[in-house]
Every structure is written in C-alpha cells, then in structure tokens.
Amino acid sequence: YLQEQVFTENDGFYAWMFLKRRTLWQTILSFIWPVFALAVCLFPVYPYQCKIVVLYSCAGALLFIVSLLLLRAAIFGVLWVLLGKRVWFFPNINAEETTFRELVRFWPVKDEGERPKWTSRLIYATVALLVILLLRHHAPDEAARAR
C-alpha cells in the first residue's frame, strides 16, 4: 500500500485515502475479457459452422440497428410533413456519451421550435416521393431477382 503521508495545517491541502473493494462483477469480467480476446484471435481456426453463426449474428445485429434508424427517420419524416412537428423516437440512439438507460429511452423529445412553413414541408415531401419513385423504377425485376 501507500506510505503514510503527513500534512500540516500551513500547506492548505488535505487528502483522504479511500480503498475501494472490487465487486464480484469486476472479478468475473477480469476473467472473461482474456478468454474473449483469445476467442477473437483464434477466429480464423474456428469450424465453418461457428463462423457462419458469428457471421449471421453480426449481420442480424447490423440489420436490426439499420432498420431501427430507418424506421425512426421514416416516422420523423411523416410526422414532420403532415403535422409540422419534430418527433424523434429513441432520441439518444446516436449519442456517444450516454448511459444504456438513456440510450434506449423510447419517449420522444418535445418539439420546442416554431413550426416549419407549408412550402418547405411540401418541397421535402415531393423530393422524398421522387426519390422513392426513382428507386422503384431502377429496382431489379422478377427475372433479375430469380437469377
């Protein structure tokens, strides 16, 4: 441990020594992290079935995140065009320094700004409709999907 420190009243600084005990969760994680790091390093020698499970798990998680973000943007766009309100579901989903509880908070943030004009909302709705029609026009047909 540390040496005993002596402070005088003239120094103007005081210190407290605090020894925090490790929790059971920290002890368990200190054993799990090296095993996890070893498992990541040995991924190239995994059997084929394990690689497929890892691949589909990562692809599924990525698809879930992207679909959540797209659904969130679609709901925002529809409500903004129709009602003129800015409503974000999962408002902290892109925040970097939040707790997990704040990250998955579902309730929308209140709209505190002034309502946008009808003209700007109509222009954005028209542009979005044109982009959707353009994507639909250039989508592959049934024969291309069958190949």
Rank of each mutant, 00 (worst) to 15 (best):
R121H: 07
E142F: 10
E142K: 08
C58E: 07
F89R: 03
L19N: 13
N92S: 05
L69Q: 10
W88E: 06
I132T: 09
F106Y: 10
S120V: 12
G12S: 04
F90V: 03
K51Y: 03
M17Q: 14
D141P: 01
V40D: 00
S30I: 04
V109E: 07
R22G: 10
W80Y: 15
F7V: 00
F100Y: 14
F76W: 15
Q49V: 15
P91D: 02
L63I: 06
A61W: 13
Y14V: 05
L62C: 07
N10C: 00
R115W: 09
A37S: 08
L130W: 09
F89L: 15
L70D: 07
W107M: 10
K110Y: 06
A95V: 01
F100P: 01
L82V: 15
V66T: 09
I28S: 03
L130P: 02
V131G: 01
C58H: 09
V53C: 11
K51P: 02
L68K: 07
T8R: 08
D11R: 13
L122M: 14
P108N: 01
G77D: 10
E9Y: 08
A125K: 03
L122N: 06
I132M: 11
A37P: 01
E142H: 05
T27N: 12
A59P: 01
K85G: 00
L122Q: 06
Q26E: 15
C41T: 11
T119Y: 14
L55H: 14
L69D: 07
Q5Y: 05
A95C: 09
H138D: 12
W33P: 02
E112K: 10
A128M: 15
P44T: 06
F90S: 01
K110A: 12
F7E: 06
V81C: 14
G113H: 07
H138I: 06
W80S: 03
E4D: 12
